[in-house]
């Protein structure tokens, strides 16, 4: 019952907002993007290959036609295999083919500011996401895995454009570039940083 009340209230609320945006698009939007991420710094030393296995998904609520708040989640998978080498330690040597992998799932709260009005043909914007990221570190020594899963703080500034499919169209093409930073330290990784390109669609739903 309680949830029905909330839904009704939300609907009334969104009706009100809707009328305020009568000459614009509905304030609530979702977006789904395909992501490519390039590791930087010590993350690149750990696993330098570009991640082509990634995505982001977000939800945004427009407070007015410039400012919106929301959240997003994502995924990237970094990977590199190293040819056989001897890794020395104190009183030990290990000969192994190492495979380094890191999977990250950021969960961020976002704020976006648009540099153009809702009726523009191209709407550039800047945003920032702040939150946490699950870092799944798996380093294989041959077939033996050394793994650690932990959470890190993450901040991700973002620059992008939205291109509506026609004036006031609720569907837009979204393309953006984001930089990710997390003070994540584990073995050879001294901090997590990557640059990421995302392309996808943004739907204003209500």
């Amino acid at each position: 019952m309680k949830s029905i009340k909330v839904i009704i209230l939300l609907m009334i609320g969104s009706l009100g907002v809707h009328s305020a945006f009568a000459q614009s698009r509905p304030p609530l939007s979702v977006n789904v993007n395909y992501s490519i991420a390039q590791p930087l710094g010590s993350l690149s030393d750990y696993a330098k290959n570009t991640s082509f296995r990634g995505w982001t998904a977000g939800i945004n609520y427009a407070i007015n036609d410039r400012l919106s708040v929301g959240g997003k989640v994502g995924y990237a998978d970094f990977y590199e295999r190293f040819p056989r080498a001897v890794y020395p330690g104190k009183g030990e040597d290990v000969s192994a083919v190492q495979t380094h992998t890191l999977q990250t799932i950021p969960i961020l709260a976002t704020v976006q500011y648009s540099f153009a009005k809702a009726d523009a043909r191209v709407i550039p914007y800047a945003g920032v996401g702040i939150g946490t990221a699950n870092m799944n570190y798996e380093k294989y020594w041959g077939e033996f895995v050394e793994k650690e899963n932990k959470w890190a703080f993450q901040v991700s500034p973002e620059l992008g454009i939205n291109i509506p499919f026609g004036k006031y169209s609720p569907v837009m093409l979204n393309a953006n570039v984001q930089y990710n930073y997390a003070p994540y330290k584990l073995n050879e990784i001294t901090n997590y940083s990557s640059i990421q390109a995302n392309i996808g669609l943004k739907f204003h739903i209500q």
């Binding site: 296995r53 990634g54 995505w55 995924y75 998978d77 990977y79 295999r81 056989r84 290990v94 000969s95 192994a96 083919v97 495979t99 992998t101 999977q103 798996e138 294989y140 020594w141 041959g142 077939e143 033996f144 895995v145």
Partner: peptide, 16 residues
């Protein structure tokens, strides 16, 4: 989305 390290690992590569 995950590239699985064990999928393309040869026996030689698996040994340490």
């Amino acid at each position: 989305c995950r590239k699985e390290p064990l999928n393309d690992m040869t026996e030689e590569e698996s040994r340490i």
